[in-house]
Design a protein around this nucleic acid. Structure first.
Lengths: 377, 377
DNA sequence: TTCTTTAATTCGAATGACGAATAAATAGGC
DNA sequence: GCCTATTTATTCGTCATTCGAATTAAAGAA
């Protein structure tokens, strides 16, 4: 952004912005645009000089841990993506110490192989109840550990600050960073995939509950009886919508033996979706029910949070065409029209590496705060 | 509060507080404590001099409109209650203009009779979807009008600024003003009475949705089928918990004719509660179901908002002893223990005049803001 | 070349907050 | 009754921020 724009954005006079920018340029935190001008030619007057963060201030690594997959990403201080990688690696059944050793090893190997310059911080996102402030994973289906001090554990092993975050929150943050509209007002972001998570943003800032961030919204029980959920209950949102639930129920319908795959991969889901699209009645019914539950879930969100935007994202959107009719119908019938009219609903087909982008941005922010604190001291 | 305390509270130095206080004392906005000292005697050192808002800066009238009742309250600028009154007056079936005439008439008569000194503003709370910012009641079961520009209408008639607010929000605000604990963190306040409303506070500030404030949480549908709700649907929270629902179902159980009382008064509810307490099995079942629904509602709130505090308030708490067993059981069985442990749940037996206090405080706040703006100009 | 337009900088002034020193008002001890 | 300790409040000089106004810079238009 150019100095004038920053001023308008922050409600400050150009004089003040100029002042501050000058000192940050001196310190090397900011750099000015080199490329003379690309779009001007129509605009009269002195051209804007855009300011960027320098790309020499270090870098940040973002990590996402899924059930049997780790995604890694390296971003420099200018916000540019330098490298990314994913690998298959089941993390369950590891003892707490082992788990942190494996993660730390994977991260530092990635840093070494990509020649990561001056890694300043690491951000990690995973499913479950993540206490970002204290750096503790209270519970996660992925890591299979309780009250795990993951941030301090990794921080010790890597010698760098580590920020941990709920994955739906990280995803919501990343999606909102890409679209200014979603950064204004309240945005509820439902992530459907291995589970069902909720990331909630108020004016672009992540909503934090009493302790955790994004909620495991999937465990809200919408039906008094219903399919079995991982949490032990029945009729949870997740028990209809999550990949594992759809996969399991598809198997059961075919009268095949009980499923052996606890966490279906993308390739295991594809045939189910395609058979349903081809017209398989029993599978269609599964997706119909799932869509209905998704509609009920959105309805609850609307009537509780009254958001400006609802975003449906995550791998589960692959079958949105199958979910949509019953989703719309349920949403319509359950929601007071006055409220429904206020919320725009959009589907964002977001891959999991958007998520690592999200944690990186969160971690960058933390660094900024530290920088501010350092300057104050 | 004394100057030192204000400083600690605001994180400012005593010097700055002293400065600002001096100018406000000059302007007559603040006054110092007259009564020499009441509690000291044990504390050494120069005694604190407490500062109060002057009571000569005008007053504010708070109004609550229920189904067949209007509550009024006059508060001076020092926050002291000067007068309050309530009157029976059904407001339904009035045309928009008439309605505002009646309300304006009632309010100015109250002001005149109580000799209200220099009324600066009026705050009004009612059930329904209230757009505080634009001063429009989008829908209210009480006023029976749609998209009513109530604030501007009353403001014109009274010649004063008028603030309107959802009643559950006003109640939540008032309750939190009385208890500092509820002003820290996130507080979800369920008001059970004529309907079921939700006021949500984040760090003591009312949460605002896309347009309205407190949500008509009662219309979240928890059961796919169930008793009839005023909104036309079935199985809404309200259809189990609200006074009208309990009253209606109690009548139906007794095989009496369809209820003629749409909005039961307190005296109509008392015998129902007492018969249930006495052991009437069918009535007990009604309260049992209502408690269960209340538990489910609290569970949804916990898993969506992750609040630090849940407050159950409103006239419906009169039967809390009957609701509690099934409430606790439902809450327990539906909620992830990690989340439930974070929220304290309390029942506040709050009368409706607490509510008028709430709107008054809201309106006072608006005035303060205006004062700040005036001083800036 | 000169004028217009927009961006950025410089400089002086105003504001607000703070630290340090000081004054004020009390209780306790002798 | 006097002195000391203790806590509260004020005064004053200093410092950092921010802004308005004027100025300089860099382009296109005439």
């Amino acid at each position: 952004m150019a100095r004038v724009e920053i001023g308008q954005h922050l409600g400050m006079s150009p004089a003040s912005v100029s002042d501050l920018a000058a000192s940050l340029l001196d310190e090397g935190v900011l750099v000015t645009e080199e490329t003379a001008d690309q779009s001007s030619g129509l605009i009269r007057g002195r051209p804007k000089v855009r300011l960027f963060f320098a790309d020499t201030l270090g870098s940040v690594i973002g990590v996402w841990t899924g059930f049997n997959r780790i995604e890694l990403r390296l971003v420099d201080s200018a916000g540019r993506n330098r490298a990314s990688r994913h690998m298959e690696r089941p993390l369950r059944n590891l003892e707490a110490g082992e788990l942190m050793d494996v993660l730390a090893g994977t991260i530092s190997a990635f840093a070494q192989e990509t020649g990561a310059p001056n890694v300043k911080a690491v951000g990690l996102a995973c499913q479950g109840y993540v206490d970002t402030r204290d750096g503790i994973v209270a519970w996660s289906p992925v890591l299979g550990a309780r009250d795990l001090p993951l941030a301090s554990g990794l921080s010790q092993r890597l010698g760098k600050p580590v920020l941990i975050e709920n994955d739906a929150s990280a995803m919501a943050f990343a999606i909102a960073q890409r679209d200014p509209v979603l950064r204004s007002g309240r945005t509820a972001c439902l992530m459907v995939g291995d589970g069902v998570g909720l990331g909630f943003l108020i004016e672009g800032e992540l909503y934090r509950g009493a302790r955790f961030g994004g909620s495991e919204f999937g465990h809200v029980r919408l039906r008094r009886s219903g399919p079995q959920c991982r949490c032990g209950g029945r009729g949870c949102i997740e028990a209809y919508l999550a990949d594992y639930a759809l996969h399991r129920d598809a198997q059961l319908i075919d009268h095949r033996p009980a499923p052996t795959v606890l966490i279906p991969s993308e390739s295991a889901m594809t045939p189910i979706v395609e058979q349903a699209r081809a017209g398989d009645a029993t599978l269609m019914k599964l997706f119909h029910e799932a869509g209905e539950v998704l509609g009920d879930a959105a309805s609850i969100l609307i009537q509780t949070l009254e958001p400006d935007h609802i975003v449906i994202c995550g791998p589960g959107t692959r079958a949105m065409d199958l979910l949509r009719p019953s989703f719309e119908a349920a949403l319509e019938s359950q929601t007071i029209p006055e409220l429904k009219a206020l919320a725009t609903i959009r589907v964002v087909e977001s891959s999991m590496d958007l998520l690592t982008e999200g944690v990186v941005m969160q971690a960058l922010r933390e660094l900024d705060f530290d920088l501010a604190r350092l300057k104050a001291a």
